[in-house]
Amino acid sequence: MSEDHVYLTLAEGHEDDARWAYGTGFEDPLHGVDTTVPEGVDASELAASCVALADDALVSAQRLAEWITRAPELEEEVALANIGLDLLGQARLLYSRAGQADGTGRDEDAYAYFRDADDFRNVRLAELPNGDFAFSIVRLLVLSSWRLAHFERLVSHPDPVLAAVAAKGVKELAYHRQYAAEWAVRLGDGTEESHRRMRKAIEQIAPYIGELFTAYDVRAEVVAVLRQVTEEAGLPMPAYRPSAGCGRDGEHTEHLAPLLAELQSVARAHPEATW
């Protein structure tokens, strides 16, 4: 293999763009998919579901990105970025679907960059600051267990676009949940310090779990997963209870607005720009 040959091939075709990172190509991800909302599906309900699920994913991806260059090990940088990228990809497809369903024709960026905190419908657990690695792992375990159980139901949703997004997402979320469960066991079992941090994380997260069960009821599946993982990890089951406020109604903690201010800062500073 001559050096010049290597050099030339670097500049040549990149047909395999898709393998680099989901959603980073130059194509419209919904290109060619029939986007008509089927009869019998309530379009505004469909749009609301898509926005809520997209907001959970976008806000979670934003928090996961904060781990980049701060993770305990390089393998964790790669894994957390993978999970963040999967969720970002899900958010983009779901926002696009919402824009078609609610009749506004808004694109993914209109939802992400030009709505304020009280228009966001993510659960509050997603927006809490990262805390330590234990907190982030317990949160990921709870959110991915809930999202996987919910997506497994959405696979048979009458809207073919949402069903397709769910079918793709199920495979991704199974990995997210497995990653979180493995770390939960390692940290619950590892050292006194890691055990103590995990107990504290579970206590801090417990009050936010009930909120997940208000809209889509997959409580039984989620509780079963949490019970299995906490038992294996030698940790207590989180004492969840019905939630007072709810992010699904636009009631958020004080942490969401600053997260969005950062996320939206460049886009809002240059509203006429194209990126």
Binding site: W20, A21, Y22, G23, T24, L58, A61, Q62, A65, E66, I68, T69, L74, E75, E77, V78, A81, N82, G84, L85, L88, G89, A91, R92, Y95, E108, D109, A112, Y113, E262, L263, S265, V266, A267, H270, A273, W275
Partner: peptide
């Protein structure tokens, strides 16, 4: 965190992840 479109965010996120992979 501040990438001005979701597509640019995904591209940049993936690029930085690739760099971690190169380090590995």
């Amino acid at each position: 965190s501040r990438a001005p479109s979701l597509r640019r965010k995904a591209i940049l996120f993936a690029k930085v992840q690739d760099e971690a992979g190169h380090g590995l």
